[in-house]
Write a protein that binds this DNA or RNA. Sequence first.
DNA 1: AATATAGAAAATATCGATAAAATCTTGACC
DNA 2: GGTCAAGATTTTATCGATATTTTCTATATT
Lengths: 254, 254
Amino acid sequence: MATAGSGKARSRTSDTYARIRDDVILGHFAPGSKLKIEALRERYGLGATPIREALSMLTADGLVERVDQRGFRVAEVSSGEFEELLAIRCNIEERALRLAMERGSEEWEEAIVLARYRLARTPRLGPDGSTKDLEWENCHKGFHMALTSACGSPILLRLCNQLYDENNRYRCIARLNPSARPNIYDEHEEIAEAVLARDADLAVRLIVEHYTTTGRLLHAALCSREEAAALKDQSAAAKAGPGHRAATRNPERV
Amino acid sequence: MATAGSGKARSRTSDTYARIRDDVILGHFAPGSKLKIEALRERYGLGATPIREALSMLTADGLVERVDQRGFRVAEVSSGEFEELLAIRCNIEERALRLAMERGSEEWEEAIVLARYRLARTPRLGPDGSTKDLEWENCHKGFHMALTSACGSPILLRLCNQLYDENNRYRCIARLNPSARPNIYDEHEEIAEAVLARDADLAVRLIVEHYTTTGRLLHAALCSREEAAALKDQSAAAKAGPGHRAATRNPERV
DNA sequence: AATATAGAAAATATCGATAAAATCTTGACC
DNA sequence: GGTCAAGATTTTATCGATATTTTCTATATT
């Protein structure tokens, strides 16, 4: 998830950006929850400046929302938005992938081989539980980013990154059980093979399938989650009685 | 260009974000030039915090680049990137436009009528020169954003905004003479008509043409600009003599 | 002449303090 | 019982100062 520390002198702002981003993506901060500066200051042991800068970046990434004079909060999620996200992502990745396959050098091919190996060797979950999860997430992102890395367009790379992160947040939030995708290993292998063979049409077909298959599962999980939330909301409203102030929206759930 | 001040209590950070963004888009800061905090502090009469926050947001928008420990600079431009940008933008806008036309209410229609009127009545250039230009830019952005505003997807709206801004920077930098697009008024009218008539295919065709026509001109202007720059670079290198330190890349040109 | 280097100058990144807003609380009032 | 408002509290937004890091400059070295 976090772009591994290849460059040297990272600033606190960059570190904090990565950390908060991961916390949002992994669902440590629930959608809609408030991100108080003071709380984050304490959590990460920093001054306000790097935190505010990191949050500002995340705002433009679409993971955090800012309202002037009343701070930052984690962006909301919805099944509708997820569908949109998925469609856009397929589009953008197709472009990037085709370009990368046209332009990619041997170095690029080697980077893919390496990323594939790392992903294959990393267990999805540690024996104890979710400890290893972050590492797998890193490898997974590394693999997908490697595929398009040679597209040669900064703007495409930026979008791929942002869309991956946003999509990934949905996956984490939906708490999709890894067993729901048993062939995920093979899918990655096939994709890598097609890309390395520079079979553009096949590669695109496979990757779009890869995304939409996960997408369908995610969508289902999200919808049932939304229904549950709606029910809870309803019953909460009923309990509070009619005429109660309509502050039920945007509950805190930090 | 700046999102007109409808909401009340805007923070200095938001104002600064809009101002720097406009300065970058309008070409007041040349591509690649350094954005020194102290200089901006002076220019806008503010502390460092809001400026750094604004720059951080622009970073994620793709208008500014940050390198840890050595500050911010205006993103570079290239004709290749512009092509990519244009293609992506057509894609995204098509999605957004179709959705908006499916979902748009009467309010949305009225917003378009209003934006069209404002754009039509605003002169491209004041009699004195470029004074009015900013106002026209505002109206132009307002018009284009109004078309897709009803798409219902925050992520699409965010992308439309970002891509509009990036595209617009290219237009400003290329210093395209308005007379190069004599029918621009009619084009906007036709687009508005098609959208209001909810003729999706026509509207999409018109808007893509609108973008690509400008795009072709822009592209040509950019290429000749790049050639000129390459020539200058070359002669500069020759003048400095061989063996001179290769610091010729990234000239300051503030 | 090219390279290396120590020190000076400039710029960035960050902190702690504070002013300005928002939010919450409490009690008066209809 | 519900609304409203003054005051207390929390939170945000911003500034000014400072530690770190980079960049520049002049000098010494091969």
